[in-house]
Write a protein that binds this DNA or RNA. Structure first.
Lengths: 204, 204
DNA sequence: CGATTTTTTGATTGCTGTCAATTTGGGTGG
DNA sequence: CCACCCAAATTGACAGCAATCAAAAAATCG
């Protein structure tokens, strides 16, 4: 498997894939963070996911990417030729099973996000986002509830279906109520994880 | 494969699966329509998909269903024991490959829906919905742009992240502007498919 | 340290939700 | 077959949450 892999280093903003273009590469993230998103003709953007170490990019049922992908920060990936990757998957059922498992995990996450986008309030969306990031952050120092947010407020907004102003306001409210503490713009500490989890699902 | 399958007939409202319960059955729809959805504690509902003939229900990465599933109308399905189905998939790589392909298709659809829920206006959502239903309806008489909507307005609203009132108002506007014609509550004809497709992506 | 971008905060608007009243339609029994 | 009933859908009036527009503050970068 490593025989067809190539290590690539990316800087923030670097493009990995463009929606609707034919699939030439498949990537596996080894460090850093990537945003995947879709655009409407007038420029409105929906970020459909943030990917971190271990996640795959570019697997699709069709011949073209279903979304665009860009590095958020300095990122390293393993790059594969899509054709070689597909051939390898055909030969190795265990790889195919792993991909299926991963795809189903992503599908579950996508359904959670649909619930968020379709039915949650701004407050619940921001709380849900922080809860998710708390559980997914790959390098979380043991014990303390530190959350790193490598993405900008604009990206958070486009992920949550909100504006940057609304995201900012909700974060401010969370700080004032003592649920979170802002170490810096991109580093928070969750002071009341249970309160946050309640808020994420609509408790008073 | 048919050796572990059992044919089951369902009426509208019958339950196929409940979110968070352990996965005992896997289904393949042979006719009819099914809604899959998630609920918030206070009862808000997000329908994450409508499934028709050929679609699978119950495949998940975890041990529990990620969503609830109910028949919308009279529906027939093939029912499999999940354990037997998994064993079969392990033995037959071609089945696993087919499932992966289907999962990736669903993932693409989920991302389209996230764009809709996060960034589209009520008008664009309803237009997008009709365009999708036009392309997915399994029994579409050749040529004419007839669309059958077996689900209620309430279900459409919960699928699009809107209220029934907003859905109703947008459909009325589409009728008045001559883009669609209502044959009955559950049967429309698309008079201007190109206008509808433009509206779905935000054209004036 | 200054320039520029990003974020935060404030004032106001507006799209969609809520609440309420009709109207329509599907189903049932006479 | 038709009249009735009840649920579903439509229509209307108004309200509210988040968006928009605008300005100040903070952070990043050279």
């Amino acid at each position: 498997m490593d025989s067809i892999a190539e290590r690539v280093t990316l800087a923030g903003g670097d493009v990995l894939a463009n929606e609707a273009e034919s699939v030439v590469n498949v990537f596996n993230i080894t460090s850093g963070a990537v945003r995947i998103y879709k655009l409407l003709p007038d420029g409105r953007r929906q970020i459909t996911g943030f990917l971190f170490a271990g996640d795959f990019i570019g697997l699709t049922a069709g011949a073209t990417y279903a979304f665009s992908a860009e590095a958020i920060e300095d990122t390293t990936v393993c790059r594969f030729r899509a054709s070689e990757y597909r051939a390898l998957a055909r030969e190795r059922p265990s790889l195919e099973a792993a991909l299926l498992s991963r795809a189903m995990h992503e599908l579950t996450a996508a359904q959670d996000q649909m619930l968020l986008l379709g039915r949650k309030t701004a407050r619940e969306r921001v709380a849900s986002f922080l809860v998710t990031m708390l559980s997914r952050d790959p390098l979380r120092p043991a014990g303390d509830n530190a959350v790193r947010l490598p993405m900008t407020r604009s990206e958070i907004a486009d992920y949550l279906g909100l504006t940057i102003e609304t995201v900012s306001r909700e974060l401010t409210k969370l700080k004032i109520s003592g649920v979170i503490h802002a170490v810096s713009l991109h580093d928070l500490r969750i002071e009341r994880p249970d309160r946050l989890k309640d808020m994420a699902n609509g408790a008073s």
